[in-house]
Every structure is written in C-alpha cells, then in structure tokens.
C-alpha cells in the first residue's frame, strides 16, 4: 500500500505564497502527472512529498502516517539532472543503495552479502536495458541511458512512492518514446505509486492514470505574491489504466 493524502497544504517563502490550499488524495499504485506553467509550484509540491521541503501549513500522510521531515528510502526520486553519482560506475550507482541500507558504518558490503547485492543490481541493470554497461561511468552514457540508470538506482530500493521531476525533459523524442515504454512497464511490474512533474502534455497523458494541473487562479502582477497556485484540473484518464500486476 502506498496512498498519499495531501490535506490543505500551503507553501510560503517569506511573503511569497507559492501553493495555497492544496488537497488531493493519490491512491495506491496511481501514476499521477503534475502539469502546469513554469513557476506554478509543481516541483515545490513534489519536493514536499519527497521531504526536501516542509509545507508551511497542512499535512501530508503516507499510508495514514505523517511524512518524516526529511527524505528517506520509502520515497525514491529521479531528477532531470544530477540523479546519478558521477564517481560511481553503473554497477556502483545501483549497488550503492543496497550498501547504504545494509552497512551503516562502512557504507560498503563485503563477501557473500556483496555478491548477492551485485547479482540483484545486475538484474535490475539488465531490466532497464543497460546490460553490458556495468563498468562505465555516467559521463560515458547518453542522456537516456543515464535516466535509465537513475530509474534502476531508485527502483532497487523498492520505494513506496517514486517521484519524477521532469525526468525525460532533456531527451530526444525517439529516446523519450523508448524510455516511456520502459517507464510504463516498470510501473506495471513494481508495486509503487508514481508522481511525475512534466511540461509535456503528451507525456502526461501517455503515461499517467491521472493528470493534475496546477495554476495560479489570480495571476495579475500585483496579485502574484499574495495568491499561490492550486490544483485547477484533476483529470482521470479514460478508459482507466490499471497496473498490470495486482497491487501489493
């Protein structure tokens, strides 16, 4: 289960109100796309779910429990840039999650534990289509391959919620189409809820089960500071998309 309940959340930076009175319940296993113009607070909203930012008012519940005030392994993330560690190889990048969770002091695994983790990591790398590139560094990979790697890295942690911040925004159309198929398959096979910020309407309607639009209802220059953005559209995709496997 991984239901997100956002209840009357406000986000303010000093006098500037970014988001006002946002309430939405995201069902377990949903794939929600957040769309809207630049600067409408959709990334801020994503960061609040991630724990990178705290709401000024309101609550966010994950499966009924308040979110911890900092990021943790129950919520994975893929950014447009800087999602993978430049100093680790492909294998190292996927392995590092296992190592950090299992070895609090050294941050490394040894012996049989390492072999098991390597095996799992290799399977995940193959699953996102990066088999054969295990020993390359991210700088040697194309943009699309780096994002595949970032997905593998995040998914190995089996997060309840996967947060995507314009993950495919910088990719060529052809590459993007391929990675969309991968994303769909991963969502079908993995018991997780996905929240994705995107600029691309086509992408939103291709992947999501539900498209949520953020907008500032009052956008005159003199009103901009005192009125934040909120959810203005909430569209269920019809016919409904259901994840391929039964929800865990």
């Amino acid at each position: 289960m991984s239901q997100l309940k956002i209840d009357r959340v406000w986000k303010e930076y000093g006098d500037q109100i970014v988001l006002e009175d946002v309430s939405i319940t995201i069902e377990s296993r949903a794939f929600v796309a957040l769309v809207g113009p630049s600067g409408c607070g959709k990334t801020t909203f994503l960061r609040m779910i991630l724990g990178q930012e705290k709401p000024t008012r309101g609550t966010i519940l994950l499966d009924g429990a308040p979110l911890p005030p900092e990021p943790g392994p129950d919520r994975g993330v893929v950014y447009q840039k800087y999602s993978v560690f430049p100093h680790l190889t492909v294998l190292g990048n996927v392995l590092v999650g296992k190592e950090l969770s299992a070895a609090p002091i050294t941050g490394r695994l040894f012996g049989a534990a390492r072999r098991a983790a390597v095996e799992e990591a290799r399977a995940m790398i193959a699953d996102v289509g990066l088999a054969g590139s295990e020993d390359k560094y991210p700088a040697q990979l194309s943009g699309g391959m780096q994002q595949r790697l970032a997905l593998a890295q995040a998914l190995l942690m089996r997060p309840k919620v996967l947060l995507l911040d314009e993950p495919f925004g910088a990719l060529d159309p052809g590459i993007r189409k391929e990675i969309h198929q991968l994303m769909k398959r991963l969502w079908n096979e993995t018991p997780m809820t996905v929240v994705m910020v995107t600029h691309d309407m086509r992408e939103a309607f291709t992947l999501a089960t539900r498209v949520v639009a953020f907008e500032r209802p009052r956008d005159r220059p003199e009103e901009k500071e005192r009125y934040g953005a909120t959810i203005t559209r909430d569209i269920e995709i019809w016919p409904p998309r259901r994840p391929g496997t039964t929800p865990a």
């Binding site: 392994p73 590092v96 969770s101 941050g107 890295q153 942690m157």
Partner: peptide, 19 residues
C-alpha cells in the same frame, strides 16, 4: 540533488560523507 538522492537510498549523514 545528489545529497537528496543519497538520502532516498537510505544513507545517513556519515555514509553520505563517506560514499
């Protein structure tokens, strides 16, 4: 982003410093 990412991979402050 890298620090946040490491946190979502289960890293504590010490591990993030180290790895």
């Amino acid at each position: 982003e890298q620090i946040i990412k490491a946190e979502t991979l289960g890293g504590n402050s010490w591990q993030i410093a180290l790895r």
